[in-house]
Design a protein around this nucleic acid. Structure first.
Lengths: 126, 126
DNA sequence: TTCCTCGGTTACGTTGAGGTATCTGGTATC
DNA sequence: GATACCAGATACCTCAACGTAACCGAGGAA
């Protein structure tokens, strides 16, 4: 009796230039995505709160980035019928699986920022 | 008898716009850095091999990115006195600590690429 | 009636990361 | 002498992401 074997996974590899996973990687590492995902990790936020949390982002860019995250199924946008309008943003299930890896990278940056900066100083001193 | 307490760490936070850790995060998430770090994770590579491994990168951009990684103490460049020239690139100790987080993100992208793409298809279909 | 808030939109300008194409220096090989 | 190899360097250009500033509509409050 032979077992039913699952077909081999399509072998995504970001190192191959045409692999779709590369564009996915690029999207989740663009300028604001890690910061937004990071901010949403602790729960839903309204547009205004999110804007305050992610320091320095303009409303235009925040809207654009949120729309692309919504498009890729990482963020859910919920509009309340109130006035003034209330719009909540939260991570989807898929988005939540991204939060871990993002946090890992965020922690690395925060923990090694000094090491990187001092390496840069040493390099520039020569 | 009181114990000597270490001073509290400077509280780097990528969500604050002026925090140096944000530029560090941005650097390690730029277009080619994750791919290069990924390629170097298994050991040193020569310029040409690295170029083959990271599909699609041009020599100019590879040189630029490697120099900035060297500057930040993440990559070590070793020139052999041979001819034709032989140049090896490898991760430093600091660079090696980055490889893990990068791999996590790379795996996420590869494992969830299909989910993202199909979410995008669904979104665009509406 | 005027003002305020929220969550944007729109038009426009900028810039810097990245791409293209061509060139280089030194050595060994044909 | 010509050619090939390696690891880039250089000049130039492009474009998409990002920033700036102003504006908007619905509704509730003063």
């Amino acid at each position: 009796m032979h077992t039913l074997t699952t077909p081999p996974p399509p072998a995504f590899d970001v190192l191959s230039p045409q692999c779709p996973s590369r564009t996915v990687l690029r999207h989740v590492t663009d300028r604001w995505t890690p910061l937004i995902v990071s901010a949403l990790e602790e729960g839903p936020l309204r547009f205004g709160r999110l804007r305050e949390r992610v320091g320095g982002i303009t409303p235009k860019v925040l809207t654009e980035t949120l729309r692309s995250l919504e498009r890729d199924g990482l963020v859910l946008r919920t509009v309340g019928p109130t006035s003034p309008p209330r719009v909540d943003y939260e991570l989807t299930e898929l988005g939540a699986t991204l939060a871990g890896p993002i946090q890992t990278l965020r922690s690395w940056a925060q923990e090694h920022a000094e090491a990187v900066l001092s390496a840069r100083d040493r390099y520039d001193a020569e």
